[in-house]
Amino acid sequence: MSATTTQPGPGRSEAEDEAARIARQRHNEGIRAERRFGLMLCAPAVIVMAAVTAYPIAYAVYLSFMRADLRNPSDREFVGLDNYITILSSPYWWNAFFVTSFITVVGAALQLVLGMALAIVMHRTIVGRGLVRTSALVPYAIVTVVAAFSWRFAWSQGIGWLAGPDSAPLTERWPSLFIILLSEVWKTIPFMALLLMAGLALVPEDLLKAASMDGANAWQRFIKVTVPLMKPAILVALLFRVMDSFRIFDNIFVLTSGANDTSSVSVLAYNNLIRGLNLGIGSAMAVLIFLTIAIVAFVFIKGFGTAAPGADGGR
């Protein structure tokens, strides 16, 4: 485009000018082709996600501002922030919020430490590597509901091998919470380990050898070489676990059904949505859960510099 305005200079031949113009044109065409190709590749994913979630999300937000009770469908009207005020002044909500946060934070810490240990074992073991790698994935492969049943039966009075003759831990608050935590952590360590092991595989062996020759012991090599190189993998895995843990539902539902103040925010929302049929309150809780998760994700990405794919562009 600028070629038309450029006069052939005294020192440049017509041919050189023409070559520069063609090169520029090719470059622009390249950028255009890349843009088209990029959009083309993303289009199916965007269309599917938008079609299946945009309307439901909008509908959930809309419902959260309404009085909407399925037991009384004619009485549907706009109530502004009333649902939110009701929830935020309820001790049940704050108790559920505490339970969920406790499970999320303590659970994520345990999952990271134990997941890293498992990843290292899977990556480094010199005997039976295939056996370890495959069997370590078993807890993750098992349906959450099934794992929860296994733990529930294990602590069921009379039936369970972990239950004492006259103890019923699943009828008390803190024992229940620790069993829920155990069930959650047991099940999700392999998820952590799998993502972390993929990160471990990308740590160059030469670098570790060089550090070893410089006199670094195993722990120093791990902290100074492996962990910094694995930071993206660690943060992505943590981000996913935290986002998922905060919605904890299946485990609590099977283990305690939320009895004895062990409800998570999702169990509370379920009880309002499906059991209570109070769509307004249930949707408002869903939106609050979403906002909490969004804030956590924002802190991860901005605060810790978690690599959000595409956030910092291609290399």
Partner: peptide, 24 residues
């Protein structure tokens, strides 16, 4: 690849991942 709307796509998929499924 470099193309317009990339950040929006990533943001949208995060939104989907985060939304409590119970509400959907």
């Amino acid at each position: 690849l470099q193309f317009p709307g990339k950040k929006a796509i990533v943001g949208a998929s995060l939104l989907v991942a985060m939304f409590p499924q119970i509400a959907l």
